[in-house]
Amino acid sequence: MRDPKAGRVLRRVRRGLLYSFALLTLSQLGSAWGAALQVSPIRLDLSAEKPAAALTLHNDGTVPLYAQVRVFAWTQTIDADHLDRTSAIVASPPIVNVAPGGDQTVRILRVSTTPLVREEAYRLLIDELPNGQAASSTGVRMQLRYSVPVFVGAKEDQVPALALSLERTEAPDGHDTLMLRAANHTDLHAQLSRVHLDWPNGHSTQVSPGLLGYALPHAARRWPVQGAPSGVTSATLKALVNGEPVTMPVSVVGPQPDQ
């Protein structure tokens, strides 16, 4: 019998590796751009019992830097994530000056008095700002941007049952495009990573070596599949969903409604 405690530890390790990979990628991009901002952690979890968390901003450079933290409600449509300004969660302070080699802590707090009915999803956009100029619609150039997911009321170690399929759609050039579609009809978010498709002819396609994306509660999301054999009608999907290995058959279907 599987030890539940050992399973929880293994899932945390898997998630930690994925988050570390994402943070490393962002840090490498920042180095390429000459940016010095580092952010940790790269995911925050809040709840009714724990409405606050700390975000640490580190300056890996040799000169002071300014950074701005903004909070957005996060929703999805089939092909896009949507961010809308919100007052349900606040970042304090929203703009910080980080000394060379130093750290600054930003407190992330759910201030909404609305009862938590189901899981809520937000994103923090953390921008390194040239000359301390706040990001706005006036075209201020950011040197580096982090996007950190924030979940309120997420139930740890639960894997939502997703409706997964391969959707064949027509591209603007008239050619068919195969999309991996994840419909999430549950109250929990799903994080998809390390996604592979094994085809009946024995070949396989790696959809994503690391994090592919999220399917938020009661939303559907899809991603393109490159290199699929022509004429396929089915495949076997292997992936990590919220850190848990999942293997399941998927069928090729025609265009579907958004939900």
Rank of each mutant, 00 (worst) to 15 (best):
T169C: 14
N131M: 04
H175A: 15
L116N: 06
R118V: 00
E120R: 11
S165N: 04
G174E: 06
L125V: 01
N131W: 01
L116S: 07
A171G: 04
V152T: 03
M142E: 08
D157P: 12
Q104Y: 11
Q158C: 14
L124A: 01
P172M: 10
N131V: 02
G102N: 09
L124H: 00
I108T: 05
M142S: 09
N131F: 03
L129H: 02
L109I: 04
D173R: 07
L164F: 07
P149Y: 04
R145P: 01
Y146M: 03
Q158M: 15
E170L: 13
V111T: 11
S112N: 09
P149C: 07
V148D: 08
L129F: 00
A134R: 06
P172V: 00
G174K: 11
L129S: 03
S147L: 10
E167Q: 10
E156I: 04
M142P: 01
Q133Y: 02
R118W: 06
L109M: 10
I126Q: 02
V106N: 12
V106Q: 11
L164H: 04
Q158P: 12
T114D: 14
T113G: 15
S165C: 11
T113A: 14
I126C: 05
Q104C: 12
E119P: 08
Q133P: 04
R107I: 10
A161P: 06
P130F: 00
N131P: 02
M142G: 06
R141D: 04
E156H: 13
V117H: 11
E120F: 01
S165E: 09
L144V: 00
R123D: 02
D157L: 15
D173L: 12
E156R: 15
A171N: 10
V152A: 15
R118M: 06
A161R: 13
G102W: 08
A134Q: 03
Q104S: 13
E156D: 14
A99V: 05
V159A: 13
T113Y: 09
P149W: 06
D173I: 01
E120V: 00
K155R: 15
P100D: 05
L166K: 02
L125S: 03
V111I: 12
Q158N: 14
Q143L: 13
R110L: 10
R107T: 07
P172K: 09
T138R: 10
L144F: 03
D173H: 06
N131G: 08
S165R: 09
V148W: 04
D173N: 12
M142H: 07
V117K: 13
E170H: 07
I126T: 00
E156K: 15
Q143W: 05
V152F: 14
E170W: 07
E170N: 10
A134E: 04
P130E: 06
L162G: 12
L124D: 00
T114N: 11
L144D: 02
L109P: 08
P172N: 08
R110C: 09
V140W: 02
E128T: 00
G174D: 05
